[in-house]
Computed example of a mutant assay.
Amino acid sequence: MPELMVVRHAQASFGADNYDQLSELGHRQSAMAGEALREMGWVPDRLVTGTLTRQKETLHSMGFSDVPEEHSGWNEYDFHDLLRVKHGGAIPDLVQHDRKTHFRTLRETLREWQDDGLHGAAESWADFKARIQAARQFSTETDAQKVLVISSGGAIGQLVASAMSAPPEQMIALNLQVKNTSMTRFIFSSRAFFLHEFNATPHFAPQARADMLTYS
């Protein structure tokens, strides 16, 4: 059956003015991920990304030079927008720059969003779920046998949760587990969509590469 491989973008620039670009480590992570796919003999015949720079840079640094198709449904939710709504317009500096505080606040904010809170946010939880579904349909309605998608943690978490018919809070747990350049694989047909593998990072398996693993 055809396969959909969804790879999370590599490490972006956490704490920088422009988060939406890869760090130097992110480019190296991407190169290793691309090498791992080629070593497995997994050669895509369709490339898809969201519209974010960090997603496109990941694909390019993986060694795929063909221009990908784009679908904005693969983009991440706008956490900064959710935070601005939650905090009345100004995001606390500690939330933006301290990783521990950032991820604790992320969990709390997403749960409130899922409970139909955060009125005034640019995107509702229902709209987010709908666009992930649309992105999945766009990417799997194809004659291609191996579809490679570069996406983001929240989108991957929701895609997996949906495939497993899991409750909304499970999306948050999945989201926070997704590693940079991890590979999540699905098998699909016109009538079926099954999770086959989640959050795999074979390119970081050797002990010498253990410090390459990141989550943001």
Rank of each mutant, 00 (worst) to 15 (best):
G50I: 00
H102N: 15
A122G: 05
M62H: 01
V43S: 12
L195E: 00
P92E: 02
S182L: 02
M1T: 04
A144T: 00
I150N: 01
F103D: 07
T201I: 14
R46Q: 14
A192Q: 04
L22F: 07
S61T: 01
E57F: 02
F128S: 04
A36G: 03
H80P: 02
F14K: 09
A163K: 02
Q145R: 08
P92I: 05
D115F: 08
D81S: 02
P68N: 05
L176W: 12
S152L: 03
N175S: 15
L47W: 04
H9F: 02
Q11W: 08
Q145M: 09
R28W: 02
I132F: 05
A166G: 04
V67A: 15
Q177I: 03
E141H: 11
V160M: 01
D78N: 15
G88T: 10
L148C: 03
L25S: 12
S13M: 13
S216L: 15
Q145Y: 04
S216Q: 13
E3K: 14
Y215Q: 05
G153H: 02
P168G: 08
I172N: 06
V147R: 02
K86T: 01
H97I: 10
D78R: 15
R46F: 09
D115K: 13
L59W: 07
M5I: 15
A31Q: 12
L37P: 00
S216I: 03
A122E: 10
H27R: 15
V85F: 03
A144E: 04
R99H: 14
M183C: 08
H71C: 04
T49L: 09
E123D: 06
Q21T: 03
M32L: 14
A192H: 13
V67I: 12
A121Y: 04
T53Y: 03
H60S: 04
G153D: 03
T142S: 09
I156A: 07
D116T: 11
T49M: 07
M1I: 02
V6L: 02
A16E: 13
